[in-house]
């Protein structure tokens, strides 16, 4: 299992001001798989993602990406290693057009037509919205732009924080299809998700957090099959969310 680990956190602690949020997080994200980070509200999931991206500094512990340490590095340097981040707020530049949003994510060489076609294959609606200000899109379309920014350039790892938050069920279905398409391309993804239907549909591996620690790791299939484990770890069962 350790050979194909792309991202590894070992004993990571994070303080935000005087608050101690992460209490020694251990996590391994395997290459070519979708790792689902689950847990109750306030468990430390978003803080874990932001710590990986260097937005919060780890106060202790190690974060390795592709075998090299990245803790302590600045956010732009971490992103340039090929890590894309889709925050919970989506981070859309509302005044910019959809094309400009994608252009910023594409790097100095600009938008590659082939990659752009790949984006449109996953999110066809964006083709007609390309020259529209991103701030005028619906919530679901904004999320599509946010995810498109992550895939418009080749990335080694995509980190996504609650992509379904506040979205209508029909849009969630589209997002599931989109992430399934990315999985078929063997894209490595670390995702925080509160929608258990989506988590079950997409997750290969799972890590469950509680009180700033990872308290369970395994495969999503094993967790999905074990109602008692779900209830113990998450306080509810996946079956009740079908």
């Amino acid at each position: 299992m350790s050979d194909d680990v792309l991202l590894r956190l070992a004993g990571v602690h994070t303080h935000i001001g005087r608050y101690h949020i992460l209490h020694g997080v251990d996590l391994a994200v395997r290459e070519g798989r979708l790792t689902m980070l689950l847990g109750r509200n306030g468990a430390g999931k978003t803080t874990t993602l932001r710590t990986v991206m260097g937005m919060w500094r780890a106060s202790a512990g190690l974060i390795d990406f592709a075998g090299a340490p990245i803790s302590g590095r600045a956010t732009p340097d971490i992103a340039r290693l090929g890590i894309a981040y889709v925050p919970e707020s989506m981070g859309i530049f509302g005044q910019l057009t959809v094309r400009e949003n994608l252009l910023l994510a594409a790097g100095p060489a600009g938008l590659h037509p082939g990659r752009l076609d790949g984006v449109f294959a996953i999110f066809p609606v964006l083709r007609e919205k390309l020259h529209q200000a991103a701030g005028t899109l619906s919530g679901g379309q904004k999320q599509m732009v946010a995810i498109s920014r992550a895939i418009v350039e080749e990335r080694r790892l995509i980190i996504v924080d609650e992509p379904t938050k506040g979205l209508a069920p029909a849009v969630i279905g589209q997002l599931i299809a989109a992430f399934q398409a990315l999985k078929r391309q063997r894209t490595t993804i670390l995702m925080v998700e509160q929608n258990f239907h989506m988590a079950q549909a997409l997750g290969d591996d799972v890590a469950v957090m509680d009180d700033g620690r990872v308290v369970h790791t395994g495969t999503m299939a094993d967790l999905a099959d074990d109602d008692a484990l779900q209830t113990r770890l998450l306080g509810l069962s996946l079956a009740s969310h079908q």
Partner: peptide, 13 residues
Amino acid sequence: RAGVENREMVEAL
């Protein structure tokens, strides 16, 4: 223009 809207996201890119 992007930085005026969201500095943190520009860095994340």
